[in-house]
Simulated assay, not measured.
Amino acid sequence: MENKQHDAATEPEAAPEGTTDVSWLQSRVAELEDNWRRAMADLDNLRKRTARDTVQVRQRERRRAAKELLTVLDNLDLAIGHADADPKAVVSGVEAVRAQADTAMANLGFPRHADTKGTAFDPRLHEAVSVVPAAGVEPGTVVEVVRPGYGAAENQLRPAAVVVAKAD
Rank of each mutant, 00 (worst) to 15 (best):
W24Q: 01
L25M: 09
L25I: 11
L25P: 00
S27V: 12
R28W: 07
V29H: 04
E31N: 05
E31M: 06
E31S: 11
E33T: 10
N35I: 05
R37L: 12
R37S: 13
R37E: 08
R37Q: 11
A39S: 11
M40N: 07
L43H: 04
L43T: 05
D44A: 05
N45P: 00
N45G: 14
L46T: 07
L46H: 02
R47F: 00
R49L: 06
R49Q: 08
T50Q: 00
A51E: 04
A51Y: 00
R52P: 00
R52T: 15
D53V: 00
Q56H: 06
Q56E: 12
R60D: 09
R62P: 04
A65W: 06
A65S: 12
K67G: 08
K67T: 11
K67P: 02
K67E: 14
E68C: 04
E68L: 13
L69D: 08
T71K: 11
T71F: 10
V72S: 05
V72I: 07
N75I: 12
N75M: 15
L78Q: 14
L78M: 12
L78F: 13
I80E: 14
I80R: 06
I80Q: 10
G81N: 12
A83P: 01
D84W: 01
D84K: 01
A85V: 04
A85P: 00
A85H: 02
P87R: 00
A89D: 03
A89P: 00
V91C: 07
V91S: 11
V91D: 10
S92L: 13
S92V: 08
G93A: 12
V94Y: 00
V94Q: 00
E95R: 10
E95T: 11
V97F: 03
R98W: 11
R98Q: 14
A99P: 00
A99E: 10
A99G: 07
Q100C: 05
A101G: 01
D102R: 08
T103Q: 13
A104E: 06
M105T: 08
M105A: 14
A106C: 07
N107G: 08
N107D: 14
R112G: 04
H113F: 07
H113I: 09
T116R: 09
T116F: 07
T116M: 13
K117M: 14
K117P: 02
K117E: 15
G118H: 01
G118N: 02
T119F: 06
T119V: 09
T119D: 13
T119K: 14
F121Y: 06
P123Y: 03
P123Q: 10
R124H: 12
R124V: 10
H126L: 07
